Amino acid sequence: MKYKLTLHSFMLAALLFGTPGIAKASESDPWTYAYIPLADSATLINDKLGDLIQTVIDKTNSRYSNSLPPEDTELEFRFFTEFRSSHIRDVAWGVFERCIGTNSCPGWPHFERIQMYPEESVYHEGNWRYIPSRFHLASIIKVCGIRMGADKITHLFDDGFHYFNAIRSKRKNYDLEDIKNLSLAFERSYMGTRLTGIFSYADVEANLAGVQFYRDFFGGPTPMIGRNANGFLTLMRSPDICDYVSDQFDERNLPNEYTYSLIKTAKARNRSLGLIKIIEQRENQSEARALKLNQQELAIQTESILARRIPMTRWQTDFPKLRLLGHATGYMTQFMFDPDFRRASIIFGFNPLKPGNLNDRKPIVMQRVGINPDAPSRLEI
């Protein structure tokens, strides 16, 4: 058993840390440029999300152009299999996070977002842990009136997808409380706090919101997707990200915990307190700039900052190999001895939608359109 765990942990560590960019841990700094105004991106995200879902519906239906579509649970399984292969996590960053950050994805709209150089961040000034102080930071966007790091969109759409599919497993038999505990364990792990020194409660909130987002595809009183009179999938209502975003996605509203070292020395505590003080200073500085700058000065700064195009691949080549080895070793150790982290890692390390897992899927009943519109849909999770 111990041999199998060691081999299993080694394979996952190789996958998560050995692939360029996949072991990312995006953090964000919502304090430094809080005075820069941003247009709300909710409509742009909703429009793109609606297009992506419709594309997956069309691809799923096309599988059955010469045959009758299968029963509800298998059809849902096929839909999410196609969804995963098309739109979930572009190697390192979620598709939405990457396209928002780069503003260079073909066919995607232009988002107003704030990119930051790591050297500008509170983490760099606080001489914080290696990744958040020296490498990629998630862009800051405004969605549904809430400013947040674009990494929250990844947690919502990507991490939420993995947790949702875990909760759909009959064998695992997870409920939402289990998923919350696994999400907390993962956030405290070598894929979160132990890597960056930052525990983000906002990330956990976004993960759980993502589970509800995917539940609403086929479940609830008003599911997004149902079946028409011919048995094919049809989009019944457009997705609205504002149903899932809350002010808890903003790390200024739901503060992080900062742990510079797992060894709780006086120096580590002082480093954490120092970072919190720097964050408070940045908040005050941002408020002061908002009052000090006249309209023209603010417009000039805003135009300059929003025009930034900072590559998101810097740390893939610059990350010191010795640190990478240390993190992989720590990951393997935690995987072997922390059962909650092991369960969460398996959720992300393996595909729950691979062929053969259909029989493990909890059954669902989809809502019909044009047959009995009053019949409720049921998603057994």
Rank of each mutant, 00 (worst) to 15 (best):
L254V: 07
N270E: 15
R237D: 03
K267W: 08
M236L: 15
T265R: 07
K264C: 10
N253L: 05
Y260D: 01
I241W: 02
Y258A: 04
L273R: 13
I278H: 00
T234Y: 02
D243I: 12
L254D: 02
D243C: 11
K264G: 10
K264W: 05
T265Y: 02
K277T: 13
T265G: 10
L273D: 12
K277H: 15
E280C: 07
Y258P: 03
L235N: 01
V245E: 04
I276F: 05
D250F: 01
R269F: 13
K267V: 08
G274N: 06
R237N: 07
R282Q: 14
D243H: 12
K277Y: 09
T259L: 15
R237S: 14
E257A: 14
E251P: 00
A268L: 08
F249V: 02
D250P: 01
A266E: 13
N270W: 08
R237G: 04
R269E: 12
R237T: 06
V245S: 04
Y244P: 01
R237C: 08
L275W: 03
S272K: 00
N253F: 02
A268M: 05
L254A: 07
A266V: 09
G274W: 01
R282V: 01
R252P: 00
S246T: 15
E251Q: 11
D247F: 10
E257K: 15
E280F: 06
Q281V: 11
N256V: 01
D240H: 08
D247Q: 14
R271L: 11
Y260L: 05
C242S: 15
T259G: 08
A266M: 12
C242Q: 05
R269V: 09
E283P: 04
K277G: 10
K277W: 12
E283Q: 15
D250C: 03
L275F: 06
A268C: 01
T234P: 01
I241Q: 00
L275M: 10
A268V: 04
A268T: 04
F249K: 09
S246L: 07
M236V: 06
S238E: 13
D247V: 10
Y260F: 15
N270L: 12
R271M: 13
G274D: 02
D240T: 08
C242N: 03
D240M: 03
S261P: 07
I263T: 13
I276A: 12
I263W: 05
L262I: 11
Y244S: 03
L273G: 08
S272Y: 01
N256C: 12
S261K: 05
E283C: 09
N270R: 13
E251Y: 04
I278N: 02
I263H: 11
K264Y: 12
N253M: 07
Y244V: 06
E283W: 05
E257S: 14
A266G: 08
R282H: 12
N270C: 09
L273V: 10
A268Y: 03
M236N: 03
R282N: 06
F249A: 03
Y244G: 03
D243P: 00
D247G: 11
S261Y: 04
D250W: 00
R271Y: 04
S246A: 08
D243A: 13
L262K: 11
N270I: 08
S246V: 09
Q248M: 10
E283K: 13
L233F: 04
S272P: 05
N253R: 12
N270F: 10
